[in-house]
Design a protein around this nucleic acid. Structure first.
Lengths: 223, 223
DNA sequence: TACTGTGAAACGGTTCACAGCC
DNA sequence: GGCTGTGAACCGTTTCACAGTA
């Protein structure tokens, strides 16, 4: 545990938070936002846990890594905790994002409304196909991939999503890195190698189906 | 460790495999298939590990949960190990899959060629919008959502992918369960509650971006 | 009473280090 | 020499249980 005193108003991530904790933070946030839509003002750790399949102790310990957000006898105030988690995740700010690869998946993600409301603003897209360059999709300009490094640097784009075929993904990643990108979500079914200071999250849809197949084939609960 | 002797030819998942191990299995498989394309015949645990960012011991221990696939002094034969992992994951068979929700994401996934080659055959799709019902997308018939339970039961569909808005996801999941589905991949940003005997994997694209934002905002390696 | 925050215990996964094998 | 398979040590995460607070 971190020894530094942290103010209640300034929740900052200590260096030694287990990474699983961060992924649960996203789920807490999602559920809290749902509760607010139902006009719930507070929620206890056991209620929050039950909704997501975790224990109450786990919820409390996860949140306690970042500060003292709870109110004994009351629980957590939803709006307050939403604000705290968003600050912790860094989604209280706006992020500029680019999408490389405007095939089926890229197009679908460009049209997805969910990103903008969470602070992720897609400001440019790229594709190797010259026929696609020049058009706009959902108001987002699509550039030729040759202009990637220039445009990303110019617009100071921070995050990149890669939806090109596997064979091109590493090359695209290298270009993004040389353009100064800070993090990448990779949808291509390959493992990328990147400098350690660039964040990387991989999402492989086939892999997810395989996990499900295993669970079903072995009649094992995935929860 | 399981005490039962397992034959080399019959790799079967024991009951007590850590779930993280299964997710790494998918990555091993992906990398092995890449190696085969490059005409590599064998690979050692340290080579496989290095390519994916794991230690050699971890690779060996993961695989040893399921059988004796390695050859001392040689390593693992790629084709042989591919076959073994596919049997373990259950992707040596064909799975019938349905997609509920034919919006942007659903459409993109229907068009994605990667599933079929991995044994996942999408045989039907559903949408609440009556305008969409009746058409075919990539040869896959789209039905009205009212016919979901009937059609899923009729075609003995095993797995379902949910790409409807969050507010409808639980209801769709309940319908799939009552139609006898065995597992669900949920792309809607809600936590579903399902009977324990139905497999569940959740994929939330916003959540993935949030993980990346956290890593970048806190300058923490995600690897 | 109702609930949080947190040390301490329990658990589970990873790494080490080496015997055994080709 | 090169490499696997695996007990044992290690380390990180989860659960327990309870002191503290509104």
């Amino acid at each position: 545990m971190a020894s530094a005193r942290r103010s209640k108003l300034d929740p900052v991530a200590p260096r030694d938070v287990p990474t699983v904790v961060v992924s649960r933070l996203s789920l807490y946030l999602r559920e809290l936002q749902r509760l607010v839509l139902e006009d719930r003002a507070t929620v206890s750790s056991s209620q929050l846990g039950k909704a997501l399949g975790f224990t109450d102790a786990q919820v409390r310990k996860d949140l306690a890594y970042f500060g003292h957000f709870g109110h004994p006898g009351v629980g957590y105030r939803c709006e307050e905790l939403i604000g705290a988690i968003r600050r912790i995740l860094g989604t209280d700010r706006q992020w500029t994002v680019t999408m490389v690869g405007v095939g089926n998946l890229g197009r679908a993600l460009l049209r997805y409304k969910g990103f903008a409301s969470k602070g992720f603003r897609i400001v440019a897209a790229f594709d190797a196909d010259p026929h696609v360059a020049g058009v706009k999709i959902e108001g987002i300009p699509v550039y030729s991939q040759q202009r990637l490094v220039d445009v990303v640097r110019q617009l100071r784009i921070q995050l990149g999503m890669i939806t090109v075929p596997a064979s091109q993904a590493q090359q695209v990643a290298d270009q993004l890195v040389s353009a100064g990108i800070e993090g990448i979500v990779n949808f291509a079914p390959v493992t990328l190698s990147l400098p350690a200071e660039v964040g990387l999250v991989g999402v492989d849809l086939t892999t997810e189906l395989e996990q499900l197949a295993f669970a079903v084939a072995n009649r094992i609960g995935t929860r």
